[in-house]
Design a protein around this nucleic acid. Sequence first.
DNA 1: TCCTGTCTGTACCGATCGGTACACAGCTTG
DNA 2: CAAGCTGTGTACCGATCGGTACAGACAGGA
Lengths: 186, 186
Amino acid sequence: MARVVSERADVLPALGEVFREHGFEGASLALIGARTGLGKGSLYHFFPGGKEEMAEAVLAEIDAWFTHEIFAPLRESKDPRQAIAAMLQAIDAYFRSGRRICLIGAFALGATRDRFAARVDGYFAAWEEALGQALMRLGHRKKAAVALSEDAVAAIQGALVLARARNDPAIFRRALARLGDRLRTV
Amino acid sequence: MARVVSERADVLPALGEVFREHGFEGASLALIGARTGLGKGSLYHFFPGGKEEMAEAVLAEIDAWFTHEIFAPLRESKDPRQAIAAMLQAIDAYFRSGRRICLIGAFALGATRDRFAARVDGYFAAWEEALGQALMRLGHRKKAAVALSEDAVAAIQGALVLARARNDPAIFRRALARLGDRLRTV
DNA sequence: TCCTGTCTGTACCGATCGGTACACAGCTTG
DNA sequence: CAAGCTGTGTACCGATCGGTACAGACAGGA
């Protein structure tokens, strides 16, 4: 039988897209198999825990990406203003300017939330905390920084909802632009 | 066989809750039957179109409620400041202070979006338009009113995502409070 | 009383679901 | 070459899916 040599990590992006487009429940093994090019044999070889393990692996990968690319710079950069600008740019790229939804946000609203509660909560908690840190170093007092970071993360998620609801990615870009203004003023 | 006498409209609230909690795909007929107390016979009697017609009816009911309770006052009230305050209060009650999600927002992020695209788009479009009207009568210029209303609707949706993601309804109340401040300043 | 239309429960349908079992292919190590 | 591990395809499992068919139950009007 054909041997294609793939690794667990190789299929995570495709897996993520299937979950994004069809949700956890809607992503059937048939769909997953078609999208990843892997049969059930391979799938269950890489993910013995089935769909749940696949989703968990995808969430872990997303978490790692954000931690490294977004959260760490916000926490550590010596220039918080630049770090925030970089965050907005990275977010715009990651969400394809509003054409791609946030899998974690979608899971949060879906029936899947409880199953991945720790990941879902941790993702947003880390984001808020990291952005709050940057805002404090920018000169905001703790309370204001917490409020502003909560507002910012919510604005991003809301913009993703709206952009997809109205099928208009421009909504997301406009929201990011306004958010940039609000995050620049101390 | 037992006869309970119910009407189509009577089951819409229960139907809505099932879709909220399990999503469109996750809401199986077994679940729907259990929650509404209706068997398949009754269900398909009231909704010959099956699940799709059930969801459509729920969306129509939600749309009607918002149109009457939220959008119309925003458009017509002689005191836009008061109308906006009333909107925030009605929203807080409707979403149970963050303990209840927005079905339309959840559908927008889910795989179901395309099937109910018109409803989903129309709901948010109407909200933005109505709020924009109120903001203009409050003294904002058209461009600012449009931007602010888009921001406000996104903020509400984002706060619902966050509140459910982090399992903390207080996030929603805080977001509403901050939104009130932003909408009050002309 | 009978008839007709509105409800309701239930048996049943084919399709698909997630998951398991297992045989086999091919590389790697001796 | 032989053994062993890692991938891979496929047949198969019971459960559940959305939907249909249909007969029985009840109310209102004739």
